[in-house]
Computed example of a mutant assay.
Amino acid sequence: MYDKIRVVLVNTSHPGNIGGAARAMKNMGLSQLVLVDPERFPDPEAVSRASGADDVLAGARVVATLEEALADCVLVLGTSARDRRIPWPVVDPREAADKVLDQLEGPNAGPVALVFGREHSGLTSEELQRCRYHVHIPSDPEFSSLNLAAAVQVLTYEVRMQSLRRQGQSTTFASSSVAASDDQQPVTAEQMELFYQHLQQVMIEIGFLDPEHPKKLMSRLRRLFERGQPNQVEMNILRGILTETQKAIGVQAAGARRQ
């Protein structure tokens, strides 16, 4: 499906932005890049900024006009950061992703284009009128112009996220499913009570807790460790620290007696 999504960059002036856009595309699984009348391409700086997305650059198609880039597309969405006061359907990146996927999953699936304009002036009004939808990224109005590669990243990210959700795939980090060993299991209530007793005893021994005036120290510490929900490994570490603290106290006490 991703091979039907075409990223179209119009009259790009800086080759580094082409490389950055290629990298953003590859991050999200897209590969179809079309360049409309780029000022400098191919160029070593594009390769440098692509950072491994060389295959996307190598497969990029260079055309002379936007009409040629869009000729076979069944859906075109154009990005614009400015309010041009023309009555046209405007969507945000998430809505744009849904429009793209609805088209690709529908009965009339065909190439879909995401069109990005010039770094300094964007798409012209005439170019935007070739787009069925205008995509507005809701950035800070005080500084609304995004770097070209960043804009490509935003839109392609939303397409990928919506696609994963529709397929029922997780959008969080997929960690390896390894059965938890015994020392990764949470501690029992009994083990927690033994720890609290041990902790209280050590605090008394080092003079941090006055058993005659305990105030609410143990209650506060109980809340702290209950929030943390330590597992077996972590509990062993905590008990080990307490034990070694008692050993250190014993050594110091023995040394003081010898003196």
Rank of each mutant, 00 (worst) to 15 (best):
L33A: 07
E244Q: 10
S31P: 00
A253H: 15
Q103G: 07
E95K: 14
S121N: 03
E45Y: 03
H136R: 15
D37W: 04
L128M: 09
Q167H: 11
Q246Y: 01
H136K: 13
V178Q: 14
G20D: 00
G29V: 06
V74Q: 14
L77T: 09
Q103R: 12
V47C: 08
A149H: 01
V135W: 02
G250R: 13
Q191G: 03
I249V: 15
A64L: 07
Q252F: 11
A256N: 13
F143D: 01
M218E: 05
R118C: 04
N108C: 13
V10P: 04
D102P: 05
R94G: 05
S31I: 02
F41E: 13
G240L: 02
S13M: 04
V112M: 01
R84Y: 10
R130Q: 13
P42Q: 12
S139F: 13
Q246S: 07
V8E: 05
A64I: 04
V154G: 01
F116W: 10
P15A: 11
D98P: 05
T171Y: 10
L217S: 12
R82T: 01
E234W: 04
R82S: 11
H134V: 07
L9Y: 00
P87G: 07
G52T: 14
Q185I: 12
A58F: 05
V115A: 06
L30K: 09
P42L: 02
P15D: 07
T245Y: 08
G110Q: 02
A180S: 06
L57M: 07
L77V: 11
Q167A: 13
E119W: 11
D92F: 06
V178H: 06
L199S: 09
L57E: 12
